[in-house]
């Protein structure tokens, strides 16, 4: 792969780097900022974010979304997915994007059901 093949824009062209090496440092700064935000939120745990949304705290939703953002930039810029053909991108990302949410959906729904059974059942779990 030659130098010209690297795509040097991130944030949909908002920031354009001069070289691949510069882009790497730029992405590192971005990932560090996201991690610092995560850790700060994890330590402070602001009260207004402990509202429940779809049976999970808003704070936890923020953590999950920030993690997916980080995963995107690690894959796209560190693993050079941005420079690959779209056929390769799709054949790697699509199976994961389809299978993992499916697994999450089924198992979490079942776990919630089991919790309800144990919570409302006549068996004491705390003795």
């Amino acid at each position: 792969m030659s130098l010209e093949e690297h795509k040097l824009e991130i944030f949909r062209g908002l920031i354009k780097f001069k070289s691949n090496e510069q882009k790497i440092w730029g992405v590192l700064i971005f990932l560090s900022i996201v991690t610092i935000i995560e850790v700060a939120l994890g330590i402070i745990k602001p009260d207004f974010l402990s509202v429940y949304f779809m049976r999970m705290k808003l704070l936890n939703w923020i953590f999950v979304i920030l993690t997916l953002v980080k995963a995107y930039y690690i894959t796209w810029d560190f693993m050079h997915m941005r420079d690959e053909k779209s056929s390769l991108k799709n054949s790697i990302v699509l199976p994961l994007v389809i299978l993992i949410p499916y697994l999450v959906f089924i198992l979490f729904l079942e776990a919630d059901y089991i919790f309800d059974v144990m919570f409302e059942g006549f068996v004491s779990w705390n003795f």
Binding site: V104, L107, A111, D112
Partner: peptide, 10 residues
């Protein structure tokens, strides 16, 4: 996900 399963269960 199985970690999440156990967590939501308890």
């Amino acid at each position: 996900v199985s970690y999440g399963f156990s967590r939501f269960k308890f």
